[in-house]
């Protein structure tokens, strides 16, 4: 498994499988979620964490990424310019041959001034794993956590001991299904069934529908969380990939009116050419632009 934290890279073979096994084991036999489900009472929360959750009634959590990089999606780049130019990240995703070839094709097109893969230009929800690294407000209910995200999106993390549901591939979920449990003071969230044509990993690398996310949230203080996010994609990656960052609580962060949504044809004007896939800017109501004259 590839892991980097602020540019430092380490290897931990099999850790993901251990996490997965832990998740399944905890869901099946752990006193906490199972008991909560049985009694229909509030879920167990480690005492240290529960004390902090009480303080999270107000404020929002904001991403703090490690220093030393220009961060875009899940990549560490030398600069904005190198990112725009399609220069690979310092710690690239462990793409398999097929995914690497597709990535190379997209990057080559960018070099020619063409964007041929960019679902974000078409107002699809971002979903996971993008939304595993986004500012949010924490909401705790009797059997689940909600992460309230901008744009009216939210994630639901079930803490009632339920098993991961099965879904059909065409049931677009974007954020997938998330089931959580506790390992000591660490909240471990497993998310699967992440389907839908969103960009997810990077603008240049489409994920598969067999994409798996494990998040580990460990409170450092009432205002700081250490977070590790691990991706596994058996159809795209040769190995798992872990990204570490922090969430810092902004105690003065508050709710606000919902911003205007992304609406195709209004706030987003890109049309994907059905033959080449090239995204083309259009005029009002999707009208094609004409050749510019002097």
């Amino acid at each position: 498994m590839t892991t980097f934290t602020g540019g430092a890279k380490r290897t931990a073979t099999g850790a993901l499988m251990k996490m997965a096994a832990g998740a399944l084991l905890a869901a099946a036999i752990a006193v906490t979620p199972a008991a909560a489900a049985a009694s229909k009472s509030i879920p167990y929360i480690p005492e240290k964490f529960a004390d902090m959750v009480a303080d999270w009634e107000t404020g929002t959590w904001q991403v703090k990424e490690p220093d030393g990089c220009f961060w875009a999606y899940w990549g560490c780049f030398a600069s904005q310019e190198t990112y725009n130019a399609g220069v690979p990240a310092k710690f690239p995703l462990p793409l398999n041959a097929e995914a690497a070839a597709e990535n190379a094709k997209v990057v080559a097109a960018l070099g020619e001034g063409k964007s041929i893969f960019d679902p974000n230009s078409q107002c699809f929800p971002q979903g996971l794993p993008d939304r595993a690294k986004t500012n949010f407000k924490w909401v705790n209910t009797t059997d689940r956590f909600y992460m309230m995200i901008n744009g009216g999106e939210f994630r639901t993390i079930y803490m009632d001991g339920r098993e991961m549901p099965e879904r059909l591939a065409h049931e677009y979920t974007y954020n997938g299904d998330s089931v959580g449990h506790w390992e000591g003071d660490t909240l471990v969230i497993e998310s699967r069934n992440i389907t839908g044509p969103n960009t997810a990993i990077s603008p240049n690398v489409p994920k598969s529908d067999n994409f798996w996310v494990i998040e580990r949230w460990t409170p450092v203080s009432a205002d700081e969380l250490d977070v590790e996010v691990t991706f596994k994609d058996e159809d795209r990656f040769t190995d798992s990939f872990t990204y570490a960052f922090k969430y810092i609580r902004n105690a003065k962060g508050d709710t606000s009116p919902q911003p205007r949504a992304c609406i195709m044809g209004e706030g987003q004007r890109y049309y994907a050419d059905p033959t080449t896939g090239e995204l083309k800017l259009t005029g009002p109501n999707g009208a094609p632009l004409e050749k510019a004259e002097d």
């Binding site: 929002t60 960019d118 971002q126 993008d130 949010f136 909401v139 309230m148 606000s256």
Partner: peptide
């Protein structure tokens, strides 16, 4: 808090597209 609405945030509200064009 849930009833109040969505969250005010410092990050861009939406991911942007490539600017290669």
């Amino acid at each position: 808090a849930l009833a109040i609405g969505a969250v005010g945030l410092a990050v861009p509200a939406f991911a942007h597209h490539s600017n290669a064009m």
